[in-house]
Nucleic acid binder design. Structure first.
Lengths: 210, 210
DNA sequence: CCGAAACGGAGGATCTTCGTCCACTAGCAA
DNA sequence: TTGCTAGTGGACGAAGATCCTCCGTTTCGG
């Protein structure tokens, strides 16, 4: 995912590296970016030693996971934009594609620490920007269709994503799932175009959410 | 706030106790119930010793804060119910009265640890139940008025509160504030009664959110 | 089959938080 | 005012958590 190292990795090393990123992705998404490294190693089925050999410190791991994940979401977004008949549908689909989204949001907006780390990294800044451009296009598109209320911008939508995707801890999984679905649906309803009920403030663009 | 102790506290002790609860309230609301005790002591302008003398452990403090805060929210809710012309208005007002609400929600729904502690305590269980009853009345009322969509219940509304009130960390305070306001407004729009767009699942009652 | 690459996890170092203890301060009753 | 006692605060040792290195063992691949 990152630039290939001078010397290609041995097959098993490569495999382990991928497993680590995969494990880190789900674990970060669920518990945030500060879980003990050992948890991640265990989930990946490797020893901490291996983890640290591949990623010299937590920051490096977070960066790698973020790059990996932002790319996925960007792909999802582009795919949705391409396949769905309307911009509105694409937006809704993206919003329901929670899992990947969850992590990107978690890292980029919800965790102070992760945010600081990521904002330095140019590769990630680029991905993030591309993603927001994509989102902006959807928002504009849906507004032109008349389906999305005109007084919001991509920053607003990103913010809602962020708020909604935070799973509530505990609860029974089924209720949690249902409640998330219902909340997303209510929120989508709130986004739909409709006369009246102006929003306070001004539309938040992609620079407002820094 | 709790039953008066055998021997009344000396004036300064009383004052310190109140300061501790006040400090804990804002700090818990902002950073969750696991901040170091010393932070709280510092914010309250007392030493850790004082804190521990008054509240033998973190649990005791959390309980005290929760009782204090649930009562406030309950008062707010009743006041809103009484003063606002419609149930819908009362609901909206309550939702905007974020600060107090924030903490109750934070403690009762967002933090696993706090939740476990609180669910044992009968005083808190009572307050919580009373609050949910109040909320249920508002929900029913607003549904009868035809302003609130009929396919939600008090559990849904509580869930939305919980999701929305989680402040995003960092950002500039003004953008954060504006974005919260906007998100709440969008969500309220989504709650308003309207034909079409049925929600998935079933209405979540107050027992679904355990 | 052998050397290099990779592995895993035990363990020492470091950091965090807890909660106690005690010398000091300040209400309050007489 | 004074003396008694409740109250105070913060230094500090204990307990735990997490980090990350190090090295004996295993696995890859030429």
């Amino acid at each position: 995912m990152s630039a290939d190292p001078q010397v290609p990795l041995r097959a098993d090393a490569r495999r382990n590296r991928d497993q680590i990123i995969a494990a880190a992705r789900t674990i970060f998404a669920e518990f945030g970016p500060e879980v003990p490294m050992e948890e991640i190693a265990r989930a990946a089925g490797v020893g901490v030693g291996t983890l640290y050999r591949r990623f010299p410190d937590r920051e490096a791991l977070i960066r790698a996971v973020a790059v990996d994940n932002f790319s996925r979401v960007l792909d999802d977004a582009r795919e949705a934009a391409e396949q769905e008949p309307t911009a509105w549908c694409a937006l809704v689909r993206l919003l329901h594609q929670s899992v990947e989204l969850h992590l990107s949001v978690q890292l980029a907006m919800l965790s102070k620490k992760a945010h600081e780390i990521l904002k330095e990294d140019p590769a990630i800044a680029t991905l993030r920007e591309e993603l927001l451009v994509e989102l902006e296009a959807m928002v504009r598109g849906a507004q032109n269709e008349g389906t999305l209320r005109p007084d919001v911008a991509e920053g607003d939508v990103a913010m809602l994503f962020a708020l909604l995707l935070r799973q509530l801890e505990s609860r029974s999984p089924e209720v949690a799932r249902m409640s998330t679905e219902r909340s997303i649906a209510i929120m989508i309803d709130g986004l739909q175009a409709r006369p009246g009920t102006p929003l306070p403030g001004r539309p938040l663009g992609r620079h407002d959410i820094n």
